[in-house]
Design a protein around this nucleic acid. Structure first.
Lengths: 197, 197
DNA sequence: GTCTATAAGCAGATAGAC
DNA sequence: GTCTATCTGCTTATAGAC
């Protein structure tokens, strides 16, 4: 419509790029330091823009965080009960490979940022319900919860606590060791007399 | 030495009591909201004292936090390899019973407060080394790490994320379901071919 | 459209009155 | 010894100049 000299990128394209860059840097910082310790100023500095611009684009810090963690909701692949353990181990592989920064950002703040807590709780409940549905027996819910908790603990230990014993281990080795444990949880019989009573 | 009217509590006793009360309330708040969101003012308000008094006693917020989480380093009871699983399950019972507020305060901030992260990492490494020493085979370290991670995940899910599926379950039931899984991790053989390669 | 300047609020910490 | 009043610094957020 106008006589613009057709720049290589239109304004809206440039805007989108800048926005994406800010978001990427925000994810990094949220993943490193959590919600509270991450400042708009630091995000802006790392993205090479003015702090006011971040506010202009995202309105408020809450909103920036929400956008930064928005992507991350995974699903455990569907399937019959007999292949459950294999699918779980595949999930282990995924969780222990490269985790997307958006997930790490969410996990990092999950214990201290109420909204993040709720997000994680919902996500876990979803996985749990899904696994539960393919486990037989009346202990299904608890068994599913223990499986999810294990997955959870390993992911945390590796990516957020950086435990030496987990950090540099190939996912396949972990999956191999976890297989009998998951099998026991998913299919095994409960042993009574846990307390020696 | 002096003519004091022997009050029911000496000044130093009163002081110690007040200090303990502040510490207890601080633990509660740190456990609920984490380090960042807990303010000296809020601690003082809950303890019914003046904010300046808290500073007087503890000097700085960091120091208050350090004192609040100081107590919590547990040990997995010692013993030979053959009883390892039973000792682990006993630890489950402990971890799933009432957790001391100092532990919860530490755990709540473990992902976002660098000092807390380090504290937890050290504590976990200690447990890990201990368990590792009683597991045979060359996978000992990794197996121990997976056991600790599981314990960790369950504790977190129950006490900090308040997962419905874990919150109200008697520790004995959880221990019973966990036994075969721990046995598999502590004594079982690794199955190869985790990736289907 | 982008940035400068600044407002407004809240935190931890301090100095000094009582 | 305990509290009042305040300082200093840092944050998010806004208003307005360029």
């Amino acid at each position: 419509m106008e006589e613009a000299a057709t720049p290589r990128l239109t304004r809206s394209q440039r805007r989108r790029r800048t926005e994406e860059r800010i978001l990427a840097r925000a994810r990094e910082l949220f993943a490193e330091s959590g919600y509270e310790r991450t400042t708009i100023r630091a995000v802006a500095a790392r993205a090479g823009v003015d702090p006011a611009l971040v506010m202009q684009y995202f309105g408020a810090k809450d909103e920036l965080f929400r956008r930064a963690v928005a992507v991350s909701t995974e699903e455990v692949a569907d399937g019959g009960p007999e292949r459950l353990v294999e699918r779980l181990l595949a999930a282990v592989g995924v969780k222990l490979g490269e985790q997307p920064p958006s997930s790490l950002a969410l996990l990092r703040s999950m214990l201290t940022h109420p909204e993040a807590t709720e997000h994680v709780r919902t996500s876990i409940s979803g996985q749990l319900a899904h696994i539960q549905a393919t486990i037989p027996g009346e202990d299904a819910e608890l068994r599913a919860a223990l499986i999810v908790a294990t997955l959870f603990g390993v992911t945390l230990g590796r990516h957020l606590l950086d435990l030496d014993a987990l950090r540099d281990v190939p996912p396949e080795r972990i999956a191999a060791l976890l297989r009998p444990a998951f099998t026991a949880l998913a299919e095994g019989q409960a042993t009574s007399d846990a307390t020696g009573r």
